[in-house]
């Protein structure tokens, strides 16, 4: 669905992308994770044809993004980093404009507003909306022409949890209907929850890539935490997952009915990022 090979991009003598390659399969939710300045927006803007790469290759649905983007644009929806709605216009006026430009059914506006729970606000001026509401309108605007691929640049950054949840829910539903999604984020939990695969981006390079589960298993130290009740108090014990000693202890506690909980200690995505890059996240 999306193919990227050795993308290079510099702003002046500042290198923003240092040879990035990855691909996104049809039906995936792919997450681009990285701290501020990692190059997430730059990558996305190259893919949507809004920015020229210095070299490398980018294809969307087998169309070369570097050569002409007209056709590409009809297949993609974009939720940009900035909240770029027409602030003096109402939500309805904003969305109707794009319905008319795309030549799509004007009822799409009502359909999607209902889906994100904002039918009531249709005639409200955008400048009177909260950040979360504006972000939801941006999402609707990107969906009006029924794109096959959705690009979102930090869709939930700075949002209240309720709005973020709505956006997550809608993205999941859209994905179930077959839309491929590429999103960037610096929120590890969001990506962990939502994405089939993630790429860690750091200083213009992809430093790790894979499904969240696989990454966590790869970086797991294979340890587990067992909470036992020794009759007086709860005690937490950390054990190796492998070895006879652990097996013996756990089996003993289990036989004696002391085990209260068992957790394997995989690292979080944030911990993996720190391990891979040697730098703190955010």
């Amino acid at each position: 669905m999306i193919e990227v090979n050795s993308l290079l991009k510099s702003y002046g003598d500042k290198k923003a992308l240092n040879g990035i390659s990855f691909h996104v399969r049809e039906g995936e939710i792919f997450g681009f994770l990285g701290p501020n300045g990692a190059g997430k927006t730059t990558t996305l803007r190259i893919l949507t044809g809004q920015l020229k790469a210095d070299s490398g290759e980018a294809r969307i649905m087998d169309l070369d993004v570097m050569k002409g983007t007209r056709e590409v644009h009809s297949h993609i929806g974009v939720v940009p980093e900035e909240t770029n709605l027409y602030e003096r216009l109402t939500i309805g006026q904003n969305l109707d404009l794009f319905c008319r430009l795309y030549g799509c059914d004007i009822r799409q506006t009502d359909y999607y507003l209902k889906r994100i729970g904002m039918s009531e606000e249709k005639n409200t001026q955008v400048k009177k909306l909260s950040k979360g509401m504006k972000q939801k309108v941006l999402l609707v605007r990107a969906l009006l022409h029924s794109p096959k691929i959705l690009f979102l640049d930090e869709p939930t950054s700075g949002l209240d949890p309720a709005s973020a949840d709505t956006i997550h829910r809608v993205l999941k539903e859209l994905n179930e209907q077959g839309i491929t999604i590429l999103l960037t984020s610096h929120n590890m939990e969001e990506v962990d929850k939502l994405c089939n695969r993630v790429a860690f981006l750091n200083q213009g390079e992809i430093v790790e890539m894979g499904s969240p589960e696989a990454l966590k298993l790869n970086y797991s130290k294979r340890r587990m935490k067992v909470l036992i009740d020794d009759g007086h108090e709860l005690v937490s014990r950390e054990l190796d997952m492998d070895g006879e000693e652990s097996a013996r202890l756990v089996s003993e506690w289990m036989t004696e009915g002391k085990v209260r909980s068992v957790h394997s200690c995989e690292p979080t995505l944030a911990e993996i990022f720190v391990k891979v890059t040697g730098r703190d996240f955010v």
């Binding site: 809004q50 007209r70 644009h73 940009p80 770029n84 794009f98 430009l101 795309y102 030549g103």
Partner: peptide, 13 residues
């Protein structure tokens, strides 16, 4: 300034 032109130009306009 408000970056709205970007979205217009992503559309068929």
């Amino acid at each position: 300034e408000k970056k709205t032109l970007e979205v217009l130009l992503l559309s068929p306009a």
